Simulated scan of single mutants.
Amino acid sequence: MSENKYLSIYNDLLSKIEKGIFKPGMKIPSENQLVEQYETSRETIRKALNLLSEHGYIQKIKGKGSIVLDVRKFDFPISGLISFKELAQKLGKPSRTIVEQLEVMKPDDMLKKHLHVTARDDIWKVVRVREIEGERIILDKDFFNKKFVPFLSKDICERSIYEYLEKELQLKISFAKKEFFVEECTDEDRKYLHVKQYTHVVVVRNYVYLDDASLFQYTESRHRLDKFRFVDFARRIHLH
């Protein structure tokens, strides 16, 4: 019961931070106040606060209490596994997805290496442009092993592939390996994106795995330089 209690308190406090009830720089109520408010033990409150601290939402300062940190996560779909649809909802800005290409293909040498597939495998290739506030700023090139994703349509790709995979196909998407680098704009970038005066793009490569550790997706996301911001949170672990 106490296990569920501290998680429900954590989620309630997190909700207040995300909704702006507790703003960055604000001090959240003291342990004593929280004990009273949630009618629970100090230990349960401490467990909830420790979890908030570990996830980068608060900083516990001796003698001052817990201060809310300004950690705006998921500015772009790179820090964690998040679909563009989920991202757009978080940003609250007008956005749309334009499907430029949808086809089944045989893997070239690059895909054989990145998706761990053979010449016999069929691969879905999906090229989509992400538009935010009327500007085309992200070019997503997704490759799915057809063994795991037997069917895709333009409608699914415009709405949310992940929503379809998880709700309809019941796939359990678990984790991803990511690589970040900068490279010169290609003709494809200039064709699909509003690159303006920029000569380079930020490239994020994603290798996405299911919960049984099967690699089922390789993605290359190409971001316009001025609109790219990688936000993450890291806390140093002190070894004793």
Rank of each mutant, 00 (worst) to 15 (best):
L49V: 00
H200D: 12
L91Y: 00
E18C: 05
F22M: 10
F175N: 14
I161E: 02
L165C: 10
P107V: 08
A234G: 00
D12V: 07
F84E: 14
K172H: 10
R136H: 15
K191L: 06
D122R: 00
G80R: 06
Q217W: 07
L13I: 15
S174M: 14
S153D: 08
E54H: 01
Y198F: 13
A88G: 07
F233R: 00
A88F: 15
L81D: 14
M110Y: 15
I9E: 00
D189N: 11
K16C: 05
D142H: 05
Y38E: 07
L239H: 00
F144Y: 15
N50P: 06
S153P: 11
D70V: 02
D226C: 11
F230V: 12
Q33L: 14
E36M: 14
E3S: 02
S8G: 00
L171K: 02
R96F: 12
Y164P: 10
I156A: 03
N32L: 08
K62M: 05
D121W: 07
F148T: 05
L210F: 01
E184A: 15
P29H: 04
Q101D: 13
R120L: 13
D75E: 14
D142L: 08
H240P: 03
E54C: 03
F143M: 05
N4H: 08
V104Q: 13
I138R: 00
S2F: 06
M1A: 11
Q217A: 09
R130M: 15
G25A: 05
I28P: 11
K19C: 03
S153K: 07
I98K: 03
F216C: 07
M1G: 13
E166H: 02
F180D: 03
D75C: 05
K167H: 07
P94E: 12
L52F: 07
F181Q: 12
I82N: 02
Y218I: 02
K60G: 06
D187T: 08
V126D: 01
Y209I: 04
K64W: 07
Y218E: 09
I82F: 09
I123V: 03
E86I: 02
E183V: 14
I9G: 01
L69E: 01
E133I: 06
K47D: 01
E100P: 08
V204Y: 08
R159E: 10
K146S: 05
I98E: 14
L171Y: 11
C157A: 13
E135S: 12
R128V: 11
P94Q: 06
W124Y: 07
F143C: 03
Q101V: 12
V204F: 09
H200G: 10
L215W: 04
T40Y: 13
T118Q: 13
T219Y: 02
L34C: 09
L152R: 06
S53T: 00
K178Y: 07
K141C: 11
R128N: 04
S30G: 11
K167P: 00
E168K: 02
D108Q: 11
E54S: 09
L169N: 06
V208M: 13
D109W: 04
K177R: 14
E31P: 06
A119S: 14
T40E: 01
Y10T: 01
I17G: 09
L169I: 10
A119H: 11
H223E: 10
K106R: 15
T40A: 10
I137P: 06
L171F: 04
D212N: 13
T97G: 02
K177F: 12
Q170G: 13
L49H: 06
D155N: 12
